[in-house]
Amino acid sequence: MTSIGTGYDLANSIFSPDGRNFQVEYAVKAVENGGTSIGIRAKDGVVLAVEKVITSKLLKPSANKRIATIDKHLGAVYSGMIPDGRHFVDRSRDEARSWRDTFKTPISTSDLASRMGGYLQAYTLYQSVRPFGITAIVGGFDSELEAPVDGEVGSGPSIGAGGKVEGKHGGPGLYMIEPSGMYWGYYGAATGKGRQAAKAELEKLNLAEGQLDLKQAVKEAARIIYVAQQDNKDKEFELEMTWISGANGPTKGRHEEVPKELMEEAERLAKKALEGDDEDDEKKDDDKMEL
């Protein structure tokens, strides 16, 4: 960055002459050092996964969760400064709750992403604050059933005014929100240290075709986290994964941890895939180059 030291990087809300906000760019740097997080939008659900770097042997295994539940049907994971992520989660929960208070219905994944995008963007505008040092991935499943109303007692008229609208409702949603407040919807999202490798792997899945199902996505997510972790093998890490399916799927529309058996299966396959790769590397290095 050529403009470092010119004074334009000292405060939020000041553009550099070439139109950049350096504070936001530095926040992105903070994200780039965090453990890899990914999200996959499969045809019947969403998987969130994170590489949790173990900073001390004194930490209890599988405690200190990194993926948070925002509402019954929404989850979020983030890379970067963990306390910033915690605040992001708190705020997301408040937004989801106030949406329910106002509209008596769960917030959609896209609406939550929009609210949180707006919130993060506000932290790029003022001298008194700094941007969030995280990139968050929000996954959810908007109910495909008739729009649920909290506290609803009857089913209402079946036809006529106030009657039902036929058609497809809801479905899986996946959004990634960056420190600038920018958010896009994704089929597969990756952030953190191993994002480049993870993105390359996600692209190979051809998620836009809508062929990959949730269980396969869980296995792919585990594998991708392992692949993305290859570059700093010396660091110990733990894999954390959650998933969300529709009302007829394995989680019944809820954001939940991936069950132990499936988790172990996915990790076993991920390790096996890596070992396979290593052998390939040794045997036929040249083939690999062509691929």
Binding site: T69, D71, K72, R93, A96, R97, R100, K104, D150
Partner: peptide, 15 residues
């Protein structure tokens, strides 16, 4: 019912 929905969401926060 709405109160209990809120309570069950709070429960879901716990991992």
């Amino acid at each position: 019912d709405r109160h209990l929905t809120e309570l069950s969401i709070d429960e879901a926060y716990k991992s």
